[in-house]
Amino acid sequence: MGVALVALLVVFFIAAGLIGWAVGIYNNLVAVRNNVDKAWSNIDVILKQRHDELPKLIETCKGYMKHEQSLLENVTRARASYMSAPDVASKTAAENALNSSLRSVFAVAENYPDLKANQNFLDLQNRISAIEESIADRREFFNEATTIYNTKIQSFPDMFFAGMLQLQARPLLEIPKEQTEDVKISFS
């Protein structure tokens, strides 16, 4: 009987250990997912500020960049797809596309001296550059949160729980260095 009682205590520890371990993994996965959502909310506010400037930028550029209508349309389309994106993953992808289009617009603007001299364009350029600084820090935070999340859901044994919770890997806000620098170009 004594041995059975000791065995029972051992079984209790093993069972409690397994339950505690599983609960810990589940809670941690929920926490890292929430971290990504929180990091996104943090950056989303600033991104919206920048998006609010885009129609004015396009309107200003339209008059000068008559041969670059497709570029401007790409920005409009990317902005629209960002606005209609249902979740963080698709919003991130849309934001990456928007940044790419915006970079092209600023790069091509170099070829239009009249546009570069336009005060409205310069003001918009400066405002977008200022917002970009805030975005940079928050993007770093968002990417770190997303990397932690992606690593967790792909590592053993968390991957089994991630599968049960149907957690999917999420894209990073990838912005190459030169792209960021392009946005920061000053035409003054």
Binding site: V32, S134, D137, F141, E144, I148
Partner: peptide, 12 residues
């Protein structure tokens, strides 16, 4: 381990 490090400027 799972809390990302924030920059002070962008603390939420």
């Amino acid at each position: 381990e799972s809390t990302p490090t924030s920059r002070v400027r962008s603390v939420a």
